[in-house]
Nucleic acid binder design. Structure first.
Lengths: 334, 334
DNA sequence: GGAATTCATGAAACCGTTTGCATGAAACCA
DNA sequence: TGGTTTCATGCAAACGGTTTCATGAATTCC
């Protein structure tokens, strides 16, 4: 692989002149530049970006840390992140943590080695102190999808409370009175907020909250499957189930179908996220749509702002951007 | 951010000694090493990996080039690649081309700048000469999923011909005689091979090939939807449809349902890929399963072998690894 | 006890860029 | 014509590590 000195030798100039010629600096005569360009082309030269990064203190690379690329919302986010990054000549490193804190910490430690200019984090939990520490060192960070809320992280998310409240309100306006709820991971704020929105919608309608209709996240999807069916056998029969994410809604649909219940005639089912799959179910799922692609793109935009502010020494005020959600009405609600 | 000299100063030794102490070299006295480790910890030091990469000529980073992370097979492959990479201290850069050749070339050009030690390519087409050129420069490359076959690329794939032949043979053994086929992108070998397998299975059973039952890839899913329905209105009514990938099978199922045809009583539907979704359809899809996760992991393993062979100057013989597929029988075939 | 060996350590070169500063030629002006 | 300005160019110092080689002290051996 040829380097800048090889080009310099062939063009009969010094390495500095080659560097200037190739980065469009003005102080190079036209004929020298032409000679250099020719030499570079002949040698099939491309500059060593690692050397450049070392010198410049910037890698034009960012990391995207997510729980799992198999979780359907993250490919969407990743696409948004990547398209926006590419538009700015930035490369994205993919870091899948598999919800494993050790792996996440390993990644974070690696990022501190000046690999990347910044990081987009989709794995934030209340106890993610290593991420807080990274931020406190002045490392550019944007949270997306998951957030923590009370401590000044730059964030892109949706109003989970409002969206859940609106969605449950829709169920109630369609005549549902006994709405069960299937919760997600209890330590995540997004699910706390969706749960709070659910309770608020009940309160707004004057419907008393019934603890018996709450299915916590514990256990896998089998657990959920049986808990849904047991609601009916225990005579608690809800007339709707609000699943706080679409994968849970899929399990709920299956549990209901297998129990001989018809959706939506006997029970309405409402999801959250609008993953691609949800339109293809039988019946197609009514759910809350999040603009994942745009969220990823905005997170990247904000990250670039942070990186540039850091370079130029400006201050940057982190803020929480809430994107609009939309209730997608399909056939799983009456 | 502290560097190795800061640590050296604090520990009262030279930078070389710090370097040796931190990389577990033997020629450092125990007490010096202890003092250095302490100093490093106090300064919260982590070595600049860019500087290290520059010196070592190795970045411990590889790129994964895929058409789209939204295509359901690629998150699986990416997981396999990443898990295996992590096990070897290697980081993965995600490159989504969106099936856009310009974007792909842009990425390839970037990779030549010594960013990465190697690349796994899931976008190979017959005309991907820029990828061939990269390989001819001695750049470590492994193809996966898509392949080209006749020119010595290191490759991980499945026997698409055999798998398709076996699957269609299954349909025939279950009594289907008029099997339509929905083809994928015509320039990709994987679809050519699946199509060839289909024809072979017909030939094996002495069933004449009928051009009228072939639905080419042209147009989007709407086109496919109407072509499926028109087969029936034109009196060509097949008793089975072999979709050469699962997303096409989903469209086929919808077209049939909307036309009032029952699956599998009136028509059997067979897919290919076994994406997660296929088990959740109504009816659940019979399909050919590919071990995507293991394919990704193996591709990464092979890439590491190539990289290490290149470093040590050994020769490496590229070969094509074909992984086993499995016919997953569900409810869409009679 | 002196020569040979072992061992920890430091100095300096190197990886391939970018860039501040010095230099020298050409152009300009009085 | 001589001094100043402009401009293209080269030299050398960074960036932050690793590694070769030299050095000098401590240990071993006869």
């Amino acid at each position: 692989m040829n380097n800048i000195k090889d080009v310099a030798r062939r063009a009969g100039v010094s390495a500095s002149t080659v560097s200037r010629a190739l980065s469009d600096k003005t102080c190079v005569s036209e004929q020298t530049r032409a000679r250099i360009l020719e030499a570079a082309a002949e040698l099939n030269y491309s500059p060593n970006i690692i050397a450049k990064s070392l010198k410049m203190g910037r890698t034009n690379t960012v990391a995207l840390i997510i729980p799992s690329i198999r979780n359907h919302i993250f490919p969407e986010i990743a696409c948004g992140v990547e398209d926006e990054a590419r538009r700015h000549g930035i490369t994205v490193i993919l870091c899948n943590t598999d919800e494993n804190d050790a792996v996440e910490k390993e990644y974070i430690a690696k990022l501190r080695t000046q690999w990347v200019d910044g990081v987009i984090v989709g794995t934030m939990k209340p106890d993610s102190d290593h991420i807080r520490r990274l931020r406190d060192e002045g490392f550019p960070i944007v949270l997306t999808s998951r957030y923590y809320g009370d401590d000044g992280f730059d964030t892109v998310a949706v109003d989970n409370f409002g969206a859940a409240r609106g969605a449950v309100d829709y169920l109630i306006r369609r005549g549902c009175r006994r709405v069960a709820v299937a919760l997600g991971m209890s330590e995540l704020n997004i699910y706390k907020d969706r749960f709070a929105g659910y309770r608020q919608a009940l309160a707004d309608a004057g419907i008393p909250f019934d603890e018996a209709l709450v299915i916590p996240d514990a256990g896998g999807s089998d657990e959920l499957y049986f808990r849904v069916q047991s609601l009916f056998s225990r005579g608690l029969a809800p007339d709707a189930v609000f699943a706080t994410n679409d994968p849970k809604a899929i399990v709920v649909l299956r549990a209901l179908r297998d129990a001989g219940l018809r959706v939506p005639q006997d029970v309405s089912v409402l999801g959250f996220d609008n993953i691609e799959l949800s339109a293809m179910l039988e019946p197609p799922l009514t759910t809350v749509s999040q603009p994942f692609y745009r969220m990823g793109a905005l997170a990247m935009k904000k990250l670039i702002c942070q990186i540039e502010a850091k370079e130029s020494g400006e201050t940057y005020a982190p803020r929480v951007n809430l994107m609009d959600t939309e209730l997608i009405v399909r056939k799983s609600t009456r």
